[in-house]
Design a protein around this nucleic acid. Structure first.
Lengths: 340, 340
DNA sequence: TTGTAAGCGTTATCAC
DNA sequence: GTGATAACGCTTACAA
């Protein structure tokens, strides 16, 4: 039986209304009384009941972060950024892993809404996510990593630029026929990365044949299968740009299993830096995303909306949605170099 | 304005009490009425308000999982196991990252309690965690990865056995002077792993000098510093057993920076398998923990407590705490082999 | 079997 | 400036 506001009121010999006012710093109360209240609250170790408060105010100090793959270091870095900013602003983060499963995702979206979270950060499922219920409930949403729709704030990197610079780098190193393994067709990041790949090829005067591109599932196994397919094609690529850090593991597996040597017979560039990238043999060249910053920035945007939503009772959808595009960077290591 | 129980009652032309009874399947109600209620609920898309329910029942269908490092693949695998079991049982998981910071941890512990979660899964902070408030509130706790205290259910692996087999393996491979880099003194896993290391040495007839053991912080940088120290000592080790997957990255960094070759000049065994362990140069030998199973099993234990706590009103601390010890396995790859 | 009503712990709207 | 009190949406005695 935790201390309630009643206990505090009784001890301070004031009404519960006054206690609430003092503790929330709303309206003005007699300084002496305020002191009594604060003393009583402290003495009793009063903490307040967030559930009751939520029921009454119809909101909480919880943020939901729904990510599509908790095993992906990119998302854990995002989560850190989110958490740091949220924490500082007095919010806590409910972290949900949808595992790229749209059923799980919509379940979590439901829970978030019904639990009256203050806002939702979402890395949308490849299939596209339905956030209309959230919008109807006036709960702000910010999309992370992938775009959602025009009415939703988003934070992500310029995927096609990243892909382009990866591919250009491969060509500069003397690889003749780069291939591309990207994510599922439904994911806009996958399309953008494929597009950047094509652009680089076109710009270099090569025709970007679709036979050099494979759409996989952003998973290790999918990456491996796609690599095998490409390698088995009549005119196999001599280098790969692989669009995330899970699939690149699969690519490495497959290449190794065929006895080919990365950095000699095959060039390789991944997407997303990881702690282990420097230690694989040879060290992995990657396109790095500022994952922490993505999380932090998205949370800042979300909290802006949250605050506006509470002040202004009007529907926030009237505001224009903002999109923040962060830059990737190329980190050159051994896997993309061409040693003969 | 979501549908409330009142709306359903009005539409079905019954009292709210009846609606509640039908939807919760408690007590018996007239079948015809029940049908009407269900129809109304469906028509209105009634979902129920978990916050109101929690306030009334003083519990929720949320589980809190507080882990000490979200960047560590071991914990993300644990999280997957937790989530799968929880999901199946109709619970959702609030995932919190304490980042090995006891302030953050106790903050999350507080939030969990005050949010009336049904139970808490905790990978205790190295410094030891205070869960007495949770126990007072009758919220079951299960410790993961590290032991907490005798009154708390726990699930973890036999750390000293794992460390012993790692060290024995190193000796069998012909390394003469294995060193050990373990976690912080306050973490019982760190002590246990150091103990296993010592035992293996003793058993082989060597005296396990403390100068071969370093306590670090389970982080990359700490692992690197400890490796450097050991390597700089008057009689440096020729092999390392490193007690987690973060620190082993630091160890590899340091060894490389000195131009030493793992698997030739230096042997190496890590703790925890990771997706990239097969690809570092040379592939990393590790002690593998069944992380997913740890999460799943811990959640099963927790849910047992949760159900008992709700049925039985007596204090659950009277039951004996259970400890489940899972087994590690040695995965031999190149880093522990001794090629001359 | 069903309905009425009392809470759960807050906040917010009133009168005073 | 302060205190009753209604309301948030639900569950659960207790009556009927």
């Amino acid at each position: 039986m935790p201390t309630t506001i009643k206990d505090v009121a009784a001890r301070a010999d004031v009404s519960v209304a006054t206690v609430s006012r003092v503790l929330n710093g709303v309206a003005s109360v007699d300084p002496a009384m305020a002191r009594r209240v604060r003393a009583a609250a402290k003495a009793l170790g009063y903490e307040g009941n967030p559930v009751a408060r939520s029921l009454r105010t119809q909101k909480s100090d919880l943020l939901a972060l729904i990510i599509s793959d908790i095993g992906n270091p990119f998302f854990t870095a995002v989560a850190r950024g989110v958490e740091d900013v949220a924490q500082t602003a007095g919010y806590s983060v409910l972290l949900c892993n949808s595992d790229e499963d749209s059923q799980k995702e919509s379940r979590y979206l439901d829970i978030a809404r019904r639990s009256m979270v203050a806002g939702v950060l979402l890395s949308p499922n490849a299939g596209g996510s339905d956030v209309t219920a959230l919008q109807r409930a006036n709960i702000p949403v910010v999309a992370i990593d992938r775009a959602l729709d025009e009415s939703i704030d988003s934070v992500f990197v310029d995927s096609s630029e990243g892909a382009r610079s990866a591919t250009e780098h491969l060509l500069e190193q003397g690889w003749r026929r780069p291939g591309c393994i990207t994510g599922p067709r439904e994911a806009d990041t996958a399309e953008r990365r494929a597009r950047g790949f094509r652009e680089a090829l076109t710009q270099s005067g090569t025709h970007p044949s679709d036979s050099l591109i494979r759409y996989a599932d952003y998973r290790v196994a999918g990456g491996r299968a796609a690599t095998a397919e490409l390698l088995d094609s009549p005119t196999p690529p001599d280098a790969f740009f692989v669009a995330n850090s899970e699939m690149v593991i699969g690519a490495i597996e497959e290449i190794r299993s065929r006895g080919m040597r990365i950095g000699h017979d095959i060039g390789l560039v991944g997407f997303d830096d990881t702690p282990w990238a420097p230690f694989v043999d040879p060290p992995l060249t990657v396109i790095d995303q500022p994952a922490y910053d993505i999380g932090a920035e998205a949370t800042r945007m979300l909290l802006q909306r949250v605050n506006r939503a509470s002040t202004d009772s009007s529907n926030q959808t009237s505001d224009l949605a903002r999109t923040v595009l962060l830059r990737t960077s190329l980190i050159v290591r051994g896997s993309s170099l061409r040693r003969l």
